[in-house]
């Protein structure tokens, strides 16, 4: 089975600032980490490889320094990695990003399964996973908390919902996004780290993945961010006064009025 895991290098959220002019994240001087949800996707891919055999390839779109994120994850036991990087990708929204990643997955070829974290902690959109599936016209499931079985071109999985979980069967090839309930990511091994240090990581540009320039970067991104702000937290409350009995009457009538029980 050939598995691709899409990962993203993100700024460490502990220290994020927004540029008030452009409304985008200021990345300079902010330490980068692997998007934490992607750790679960990588772990699950390695476990699937251990269960069913095959190979695990990591894929990311980003600037040259995103290679560090790939190396960190390679040390966990992935076989190899590809960095998709080109100046024309700058300013990509989720539509352009998922198109770009889908084109890279096409170029990799013969992929059975694509795994992503449920969302990235910088944008929090959770749109790229489904976007890739849409571009590839493959099956898709979000919020996967367990992969029960894979066989005969079909996978059985559990999708986490607010009120329980759905049991799904989806045909392969497919794209899934996973939640942290799916596993506990392992720590790297020394042999893995040494192997990861030496591995060649190919860099593919826009031309090499055969992408339509119109659908890349800013020109392929219809999203316009008009404003980013922190919503004001307003506390609304009233402290009842007077005799206890009167207060209780007031409370009961307010509850009835607001229809909250």
């Amino acid at each position: 089975m050939k598995i691709v895991v899409c990962i993203k290098q993100v700024p460490d959220v502990a220290d994020v600032r927004i540029d008030p002019e452009t409304n985008t994240l200021i990345r300079e001087g902010v330490p980068s980490i692997v998007n934490p949800f992607d750790m679960y996707a990588v772990e699950e891919a390695i476990r699937l490889k251990e269960r069913f055999g095959g190979e695990v390839k990591l894929l990311t779109m980003g600037p040259p320094q995103a290679e560090a994120a790939l190396r960190e994850l390679l040390s966990l036991g992935a076989d190899d990695a590809v960095l998709v990087s080109d100046r024309t990708f700058a300013g990509s929204d989720t539509l352009a990003t998922s198109y770009t990643l889908a084109m890279a997955i096409r170029k990799i070829g013969d992929v059975d399964l694509v795994l992503c974290g449920k969302q990235a902690i910088d944008g929090d959109t959770a749109q790229v996973g489904p976007g890739i599936a849409e571009n590839l016209h493959w099956g898709f499931a979000a919020y996967v908390r367990k992969i029960e079985e894979i066989g005969d071109g079909v996978m059985r999985l559990e999708r986490l919902m607010d009120d329980g979980y759905d049991l799904l069967r989806i045909p392969l090839p497919a794209v899934i996004t996973v939640v942290k309930e799916i596993n506990e990511p392992r720590l790297p091994s020394l042999k893995g780290k040494m192997k990861a240090k030496k591995l060649e990581i190919p860099v593919w540009n826009a031309e090499e993945i055969g992408a339509d320039p119109e659908r890349l970067g800013l020109s392929g991104s219809p999203t316009k961010v008009s404003k980013i702000f922190t919503p004001e937290f307003r506390r609304k409350g009233e402290i009842l006064q007077g005799e206890a009995e009167a207060q209780v009457d007031r409370l009961v009538s307010e509850i009835e009025r607001l229809n909250i029980v």
Binding site: R186, L187, P188, S189, L190, K191
Partner: peptide
């Protein structure tokens, strides 16, 4: 078990015997 999975137990053992 974590230390084993991280290859720590073989740090001083020659590679021909599975160490680092």
């Amino acid at each position: 078990k974590v230390l084993a999975d991280s290859d720590m137990f073989g740090l001083y053992i020659p590679e021909e015997y599975g160490g680092m």
